Simulated scan of single mutants.
Amino acid sequence: MDSVSESQRTLYPYVTGSSVVAIKYKDGILMAADMGGSYGSTLRYKSVERLKPIGKHSLLGASGEISDFQEIMRYLDELILYDNMWDDGNSLGPKEVHNYLTRVMYNRRNKFNPLWNSLVLGGVKKGQKYLGTVNMIGINFEDNHVATGLGNHLARPILRDEWNENLTFEEGVRLLEKCMRVLLYRDRSAVNKIQISKITEEGATVFPPFSLKTYWEFSAFKNPTVGAEGSW
């Protein structure tokens, strides 16, 4: 019998991260994600970082399979290194990186071996803010606020009601905290350990993780403003 091994494909993800939520604000881009990593239906890991700076101008957030996200980071590290080797005084902006990711995701989908991630890519270059998303089959778009996973169903309605282009940093953080709190209440894969990052013309900052305050009393659900944090 022929002993040639058959091609193997990932049929379902193993360790996954939940939603990423991102918005444009007055000075740049804000992004938030929790740090949970679910092994199937078991919340196995609670310190998984899913927000990463890319080059000088971009910030990446990922939902889905953690090992595939690590593979994407390897691709991006090679891309940024190759770009820096030109030493021509120019560097890839967020739009170029987003376009690259859409080609990677669509290419892998056409090979029937997709990377099981939904990605959010934001950044600022030459004063222009950019925010886009792409999923595992290459569907992509640009918007003023984006979300992946259940955030696309639960956080986007909040953002449509409350987002505006002149949000300050503090207002933007409070809005993201509100979205992440709703996701924590409704998404069994979410944890209350949150990471928030920003990127402006000066570069990216990933803030230390913190525990999101939760309010389970009935009065907290009657008054949606209860629990707004102003520590930023």
Rank of each mutant, 00 (worst) to 15 (best):
E96F: 06
V146L: 08
G203S: 05
E170V: 00
E96P: 08
S38W: 09
T102Y: 07
R181M: 01
Y45S: 03
L121D: 02
D88Y: 13
E202P: 05
F221Y: 07
N84T: 15
M31F: 07
R9H: 13
E142N: 05
L51M: 04
L184K: 10
G203H: 07
P94M: 00
A22C: 07
V124M: 02
E171C: 07
P114M: 07
G203A: 04
L184E: 07
K222N: 09
S7A: 13
D161T: 12
L59C: 00
S38E: 05
A62I: 10
V182M: 11
G28I: 08
T42E: 04
L60V: 12
D161N: 11
R156H: 10
R50T: 02
V191Y: 13
N84D: 15
S5H: 12
L119I: 14
L59P: 02
E202N: 12
E78D: 11
N117G: 05
G55N: 00
V48S: 13
E229I: 08
Y25K: 04
I196A: 04
D83Q: 14
G127F: 02
E217G: 14
I158N: 00
N110G: 13
D34C: 04
D27E: 15
G64M: 10
N164T: 12
V124R: 01
D143P: 02
K126I: 02
Y39L: 13
M35W: 08
M85G: 09
I66V: 12
G64C: 08
V124I: 01
G132I: 11
D143W: 06
F207T: 09
V15N: 13
K125F: 01
R181G: 01
V134H: 08
T42G: 00
L30M: 00
F112E: 15
E202T: 12
A204M: 00
V48G: 11
Y82R: 14
R174V: 10
N99M: 11
L183P: 00
L60Y: 09
S18A: 06
N117T: 08
E65R: 15
P157S: 06
K111G: 12
N166F: 04
L167Q: 08
K126R: 10
E202M: 05
R181W: 04
F69D: 04
V206L: 09
N164L: 08
T148H: 05
R188A: 11
R74G: 14
S219R: 11
Y82Q: 14
T10D: 14
E71F: 15
S7G: 09
T102I: 13
V134W: 11
R186W: 07
Y106G: 05
E162M: 10
A33L: 03
W232K: 01
G127E: 02
R181S: 00
L11V: 06
A228E: 15
K193R: 15
R186L: 07
F69I: 05
R188H: 05
L101N: 10
P94C: 03
M85F: 14
A204W: 04
G61S: 01
G172F: 01
I199R: 12
S19H: 05
D161Y: 06
Y82M: 10
L150W: 03
W216A: 13
V182K: 11
K111F: 09
W216Q: 14
D77T: 14
F207M: 12
P53N: 09
N164V: 07
Y215N: 05
M105T: 06
S38H: 13
E78A: 12
R160L: 05
T214V: 04
F141C: 06
T102N: 14
G61D: 02
T225V: 05
K125D: 02
L92R: 15
T168N: 03
K222C: 07
